[in-house]
Design a protein around this nucleic acid. Sequence first.
DNA 1: GTGAACGATTCCACTGAGTGAAAGGGCCGG
DNA 2: CCGGCCCTTTCACTCAGTGGAATCGTTCAC
Lengths: 257, 257
Amino acid sequence: MAGNTSRPGQSVAARTLEVLGAFDRTHRALTLTEIAERAELPVPTVHRLVRELETWGALTRRPDTRYVIGRRLWDLGLLAPIQSGIREIAAPFLQDLYAATFATVHLAVRDGVEVLYLDRLSGRASVPVVSRVGSRLPLHCTGVGKVLLAHSPDEVRREAMGDLRAMTPHTIVAPGVLDRQLRQIRQQGYATTTEEMTLGACSIAVPIRRGDEVVAALGVVVPSLGRNRATLVAAAQVAAQGVGRTLGGGMPSPAMV
Amino acid sequence: MAGNTSRPGQSVAARTLEVLGAFDRTHRALTLTEIAERAELPVPTVHRLVRELETWGALTRRPDTRYVIGRRLWDLGLLAPIQSGIREIAAPFLQDLYAATFATVHLAVRDGVEVLYLDRLSGRASVPVVSRVGSRLPLHCTGVGKVLLAHSPDEVRREAMGDLRAMTPHTIVAPGVLDRQLRQIRQQGYATTTEEMTLGACSIAVPIRRGDEVVAALGVVVPSLGRNRATLVAAAQVAAQGVGRTLGGGMPSPAMV
DNA sequence: GTGAACGATTCCACTGAGTGAAAGGGCCGG
DNA sequence: CCGGCCCTTTCACTCAGTGGAATCGTTCAC
């Protein structure tokens, strides 16, 4: 910045972004001092930046003097290609699937070695689940994750296999067992989980294909699979087919995520 | 900034935000030069800022060298209180309403003298509508808008009445007529529109209350009202009651928007 | 094949915007 | 009334930011 800096080499733009970066899912409302601590910047510096961010609408100040992400950033976030691609196309199909099953329905893509949840519909009566729109979970213990993992490049699969953390006593942590499951998932065209991520929650998931490539996964979460497993799989597959058809068979473009 | 500036008095942070501000619904992917034009900044300056934004994840560069809003800003936008308040609470009720009617369902709040759409569910079979999540429309010609207008402070109503633009031949542009409608909406507890915003689209809308205050509105869009008007009103009211009950009767906090 | 046109990059002499310790307010709770 | 906590403002100090110009890389017309 300009002279007198305690940490030279960091630009003003970077500091501004650090301030925004202080906010996350577990820190949605921060005081000036908290932002300064989390961004590792002096309070007066943060104060100046925060005022500019507030003026522009990136942050909003609540009556209790805490800052929260502002409406303008919300607007901006909605412009991300994530939002306009698969998510919008899939939305009606998710709704149909929800209407047919009244279970929590998920749309997810792979982001590195994690599942990124793009959309979720959950009825009041549904099983409580941890996933939220925008949240990331491990690939190996969720239905959509296993589908995506089964259709990932070897490289990704190897990396993911290296860290099979147990989320519940039912989580599969043996690479051999998981590998056998993945093969089966590719064969039968769907994945299941039984309390592997959350106790009391089971799921089935199917791939969404653009042409030959699996670009996303669609999942249904229920208290137990039992006798309606076939029904759920059928319903999910119909919905996934529909999304895939609407996506078109064209070249998968990175902008469509 | 530092010396040599063509437009002194503008901070680096402000310029960085100008760069982000260059993106909007009709400009989702911009080249460097386009950003520079829209932000009214020299190309090299924008280039430097854009690279920092890309490094941080606020922007993503597509293969065709255009920039789009990045995933990290999407994440950040989801943290806005807009997202976590009414929207999440209402989501299951919207889904129930959708499942019951298979019509496009809206959740909206008033933002100044406009309707801000917080959420939308639309089945494939539904009427095409212009609203999208995050979009804003005039208050006087949409169902949710009329509900919100009917329960607005006099000041807002006066301002909105001053500019009744005709969107279709059916749009109500006479303040007297609209005022009478608003009174009726307050009495009967719901609003209707018939092709006032889009030809071929009618709607009914009901208020969502937190305690006594109307904090949002819930709307259903259908091709025509006809004989199932009563059914739609009933279904929407049940859903709106549910949302209101779940919101709780506490002090309406601005953070909940 | 050539060169005009356009956008993305890089350079670098020039300078005023940014910095942050310190001091000043404002608001509790004790 | 005072001590603690957080927000806000001040201001001497200084180097980060600026942007015109030059360069590089494509694409496209002829």
